[in-house]
Design a protein around this nucleic acid. Structure first.
Length: 563
RNA sequence: UGCCCCGUGGUGUAAUUGGCAACACGUCUGACUCUGGAUCAGAAGACUCCAGGUUCGAGCCCUGGCGGGGCAGCCA
């Protein structure tokens, strides 16, 4: 991520409400003019574009205010968490440019401290061990409109609570037999304050703590403590925690410890996809996609594999904005962000995805090396040579026997320019027994070679091509959106799986690429001229087989008009 | 039905804190172009959810509605 913005730039940047809050805190010196943020994922899945927004926000704030940014795993639920997720999250945060330096923390490392604080609350009569079952607790909690009632265990003496709590810790009870609850107010209109649970018994192996613990802190109890321990100033979370803030504050106040400020903002949603980890997990487990990093997924690892750059994702999240109202960003904005980046940085090459053979009948049986510009947006990218010969492949869609009005590619008897080569004329159309076009016989005009300036001829279209004898073969995967509905998970009747796009992947086993691509490296990005941006797949590319993923198409004003 | 949050072009944000509603994406024109890309020029699109009130003046403040979202896990 770019270096710390200078103060003038920071002044002029339109500020979201969080920056305004922080500006206010800087003025009053609330946190001693320090800013310290964190990104606190639970390692129970891969990061998605929404998490990327949170990382960019939190890291960006730390950077802009010359503060610090922590990565902290909120690993308080051993039943759902795995090291695989921890590892992928670390990789993704780094890749996005979220620089946590050496500050990578785990909530589970704070369990001893949390336990002691719980003991303190018990001693102060602010927490108690409850014998009620999960069902009973729910019943006692009341409803949205009716107050709850107090558990019979609520007024147990502190001594008894202490010994019971210790027994909980020592594994003397089964799952669900006891819980530790905060003693707040069973009649609060905010249900989160009706004696929330602080610890539950879970006999399960934790990915870092092993079997050291069989009681685990709940989010409400743990999160503020984690922030407090790390000296976080602004604890930024999503909207659904707004009703939990009084609880966040209550625990910290009762303990009298350092007290960060929780600020909530609306998460990013993206249309034509789903964002909940549960649904993404389902897509993976039930094999609707090929893993968390399937390029059609909205995960950071998938976007990376698809060819997105960290820069593009940062721009996308910046442009998506920060506010408190629910929002859905358009897929087009994501696509814009990557096109904008790749247009400037990706070298152009020629590749034919759906080949149609063209024989240039009057071209000699020789090979010419033609000059091609690598990136018209960046002269420093230089030029390269491309071989041209008598037999070439062009794109099937670049020829039409009966073209609609406005089509300016190859038609019978018509002319087009071959990019960086000659103008050719279609003399003959060859078909198979099914009437399908299998080959074109064309003539070329030797006076029209690109760069020679000897041609007065103007043609409307320029198409790309690859010399048949020199072509490199590759598998190419074309992706479309994973869902056909803008908001696949908001239909009241239909399950989101019913909206899966059956055509979200078109696999082209054999595409023809210009020879310069022979040694393309996994992860390398290119623009296939007129086709879109592509990158070498990092998962399936081998020494003997190149696999390309289409990152995004080029904007296509003709295709749009034609439909 | 209790509590909390939120309503600004199609989408997402802004409006110097009470002063002509701006920017980006998208859409549509046109120019240019050896990528139907890029670039450039332009256009359309908003009674700022509604109704009252305060004020010379309200997107912004007040009141009341309406609409959307969240909360009744021993998930986070």
């Amino acid at each position: 991520m770019e270096e710390k913005k200078n103060s003038e730039e920071l002044q002029n940047k339109p500020k979201n409400f969080i920056y305004e809050i922080i500006d206010g805190d800087m003025e009053t010196g609330k946190f001693g003019n320090k800013v310290h943020t964190r990104f606190p994922p639970e390692p129970n899945g891969y990061l998605h574009i929404g998490h990327a927004a949170s990382i960019c926000l939190n890291y960006g704030i730390a950077r802009d205010y010359n503060g610090k940014f922590n990565l902290r795993f909120d690993d308080t639920n051993p039943e759902k968490e795995e090291v695989e997720y921890v590892e992928s999250i670390i990789e993704d945060v780094k890749w996005l440019g979220g620089n946590f330096e050496d500050r990578i923390f785990y909530a589970s490392d704070y369990f001893d401290k949390m336990y002691n604080w719980a003991v303190e609350l018990i001693k102060n009569g602010k927490a108690y061990v409850d014998d009620l079952s999960a069902d009973e607790i729910r019943a006692y909690r009341g409803t949205l409109t009716e107050p709850g009632k107090e558990s019979p265990s609520r007024n147990r003496p502190a001594e008894e609570n202490l010994s019971l709590f210790e027994k909980m810790k020592n594994g003397e009870f089964k799952n669900g037999e006891k819980v530790l609850r905060a003693k707040i107010d069973m009649t609060s209109p905010n249900l989160n304050l009706r004696d929330p649970i602080m610890y539950r018994i879970v006999h399960a192996e934790h990915h870092r703590q092993g079997n050291k613990w069989c009681i685990y802190p709940t989010y409400d109890w743990a999160h503020g403590l984690e922030d407090s321990i790390e000296g976080i100033t602004h604890s930024i979370c999503t909207l659904e925690f707004e009703n939990h803030r009084p609880l966040y504050d209550w625990f910290l106040n009762e303990l009298g410890v350092y007290h960060p400020q929780q600020i909530e903002f609306a998460r990013i949603n993206l249309n034509y996809t789903v964002m909940s980890k549960r649904k993404l997990l389902k897509l993976v487990q039930e094999k609707y996609v090929d893993g968390w990093d399937d390029p059609r997924m909205p995960t950071v690892s998938a976007l990376r594999r698809r060819g997105y750059t960290p820069e593009a994702i940062r721009n996308f999240t910046d442009n998506s904005g920060i506010a408190k109202r629910d929002k859905v960003s358009e897929y087009a904005l994501l696509e814009f962000s990557i096109r904008e980046d790749l247009n400037k940085h990706a070298n152009r090459v020629m590749a034919v995805l759906h080949p149609l053979k063209v024989v240039i009948t009057n071209y000699p049986g020789t090979v010419e090396e033609l000059d091609a510009v690598n990136n018209p947006e960046d002269p420093s990218a230089g030029t390269r040579k491309i071989p041209f010969s008598k037999e070439i492949f062009v794109e099937q869609s670049d020829f039409m026997e009966n073209p609609p009005k406005g089509y300016h590619r190859l038609v019978p008897g018509g002319e087009v320019r071959l990019r960086y080569a000659y103008i050719i004329k279609c003399e003959e159309v060859i078909k198979n027994e099914n009437g399908e076009v299998t080959e074109l016989r064309c003539s070329y005009d030797a006076e029209t070679r690109s760069g020679t300036g000897t041609s007065n001829k103007k043609v409307k279209g320029t198409i790309h091509w690859v010399s048949a004898a020199h072509a490199v073969e590759a598998e190419v995967r074309l992706y479309d959106r994973l869902f056909t509905a803008e908001s696949p998970d908001s239909d009241k009747e239909k399950d989101f799986l019913e909206f899966i796009n059956p055509n979200s992947l078109e696999l082209i086993p054999k595409a023809y690429l210009e020879p310069s691509l022979k040694n393309a490296k996994p992860g390398e990005r290119f623009q296939f001229e007129r086709n879109g941006y592509f990158c070498v797949d990092t998962k399936y590319t081998t020494k003997d087989k190149l696999v390309f993923n289409r990152t995004v198409t080029l904007k296509d004003s003709w295709g749009k008009k034609a439909n």
